[in-house]
Design a protein around this nucleic acid. Structure first.
Length: 440
RNA sequence: CGGAGUGUGGCUCAGCCUGGUAGAGCACCUCGUUCGGGACGAGGGGGUCGCAGGUUCAAAUCCUGCCACUCCGACCA
């Protein structure tokens, strides 16, 4: 992509409403724009990151055996009256009426709808286990939206719902999501820690929050420091193995880890002093087992091998991709801007023509751009007539992992300079070597 | 929902107290000189000062109401 053809409305100054780093940087980098309190438009650069995140989420959901569908954002109130949550949910639910004065709502979550879908098709234990998920916009009318995407009212959520014939099956479904989540966040360059959690309004009695540590996190968290070194399961993990998954989950739940709501100071105090981590955290995922909380009132029944119909055991599993955009920035930035992990970066590389218009730098940049394009390396070419300093600032701000600096100074020796955004490492090399490096 | 604030060109803000022809920096357009860490000079365009009332000869400025947004707290993916 040539910057001259792209839409990147970056800001030199920080809009005054932005307090935390991710909010500030997303606005400055031209990734998003606030449309109303807690409601944002994703601009092209932000959308690219969001899509990369969704792609990873999707791959790991699919790998674990979950199946994607897509439910609407607008739901009928009747469904929620069945579960009793239409009244219970309170003012956080955005209630609307259609032209016939029917009560509708903008979905804050989808337990009711997925249960209705399930019950209308599935009758037998033979169709289980089943895990259906979608990635869809949600709306929760927060009392106080803040921190940009971190706590918006409208947000993108991946929500999965598992259906099993009994608790043992549901536990395995829970474990599949547990492991999928560990992998999902790790692929985005995040170290997530599963913490015992309140199950909240979703209901149920088995629940973990996946927390990443960041100074600007909203909640106070406590955990054992060994979590920071645990190995995340590889892509070859066998999601069909009940015992295998259970041992992974056992390991990841063996040490102390809790958010402030579930914190037990006495238990935490038993850890060796140098193993105690007390920090701020951002919740990026939350999984629940809630048994028959919805299947019973909504009559989602399946027949077992004995022919007897029983309410299906359910769980729900959420990840907030739009929040993850912000969370990743919180975990990875410096004074100059964002430092995207490669897996979610909007572009892998960025070419900076330090003397736009000069025939030698132009030719070298065009050559690199064509070559990288041919090799499938997603590249942003800064081809605007700006001074080098301005290009450096923009490149650091938007955080593309690799910057290729093409200027007369290096070109005199036939070299370009490769700069790694994560640590600032710079290296002179031939354009051909630069391409090779990016194709590794 | 309690408390505290803010709304003035695209962005950051001054002007308001003490009413009298709407400003600066950045950004934008033109020309020139520049060009390895957000250049310089000259010229230029752009704002019914959040909205509605009121007071006044005169309102960005004073008064009333409303709206929007932000921050702190309680609450939450």
């Amino acid at each position: 992509m040539r910057l001259s053809r792209f839409f990147l409305p970056s800001l030199r100054e920080t809009p005054k409403e932005a307090e935390i780093a991710s909010h500030r940087l997303m606005l400055r980098a031209g990734m998003m724009r606030q449309e109303a309190s807690g409601i944002y438009a994703f601009l092209p650069l932000g959308l690219r990151v969001l899509q990369k995140i969704c792609a990873i989420v999707r791959e790991e959901q699919d790998r674990s055996g979950a199946i994607e569908l897509l439910m609407p954002t607008i739901q009928s109130a009747d469904l929620w009256r069945e579960s009793g949550r239409y009244e219970a949910y309170g003012k956080e639910m955005l209630r609307i009426k259609d032209r016939h004065e029917r009560d509708m709502l903008y979905g804050p979550t989808n337990e009711e709808m997925i249960t209705a879908i399930f019950r209308s098709y599935v009758r037998s234990y033979k169709d289980l286990p089943l895990n259906l998920y979608h990635i869809q916009w949600k709306f929760r009318d927060e009392v106080r939206p803040r921190f940009g995407l971190m706590r918006g009212r409208e947000f993108l959520m991946k929500d999965a719902y598992s259906f099993d014939v009994d608790f043992a099956g549901a536990k395995h479904a829970y474990n599949r999501m547990f492991v999928a989540y560990l992998r999902t966040f790790a692929r985005m360059g995040l170290r997530s820690i599963p913490m015992v959690a309140e199950s909240g309004p979703i209901g149920g009695n088995l629940s973990h929050e996946f927390i990443i540590l960041a100074d600007t996190g909203e909640s106070e968290v406590f955990c054992h420091s060994d979590f920071l070194d645990f190995e995340v399961p590889g892509p070859d993990v066998d999601f069909g193995s009940v015992a295998g998954l259970q041992s992974i989950v056992d390991k990841w739940t063996s040490l102390y880890a809790a958010t402030s709501e579930k914190h037990e100071a006495a238990a935490f105090a038993k850890l060796a002093v140098d193993k105690r981590v007390s920090a701020r955290g951002i919740e990026v995922g939350h999984i629940f087992y809630f048994g028959t909380k919805y299947s019973e009132p909504m009559k989602a029944l399946v027949a077992g091998p004995d022919g007897v119909e029983r309410p299906v055991h359910m769980g729900s599993y959420g990840i907030g991709p739009s929040r993850l955009v912000a969370a990743i920035i919180e975990a990875s930035h410096d004074e100059a801007g964002i430092k995207w992990p490669e897996a979610v970066a909007p572009f892998k590389a960025m070419i900076l023509n330090l003397k736009q218009g000069a025939s030698d730098t132009n030719a070298a940049c065009e050559g690199l751009y064509a070559e990288l394009g041919a090799k499938g390396v997603d590249t942003l070419y800064h081809d605007l007539d700006e001074r080098p300093g301005s290009k450096f600032a923009t490149a650091d701000l938007i955080g593309i992992p690799w910057q290729i600096l093409v200027g007369p100074r290096g070109l005199a020796e036939g070299k370009v300079e490769m700069k790694r955004r994560s640590d600032g490492l710079r290296e002179l090399m031939s354009p051909a070597d630069a391409v090779r490096r990016l194709c590794l």
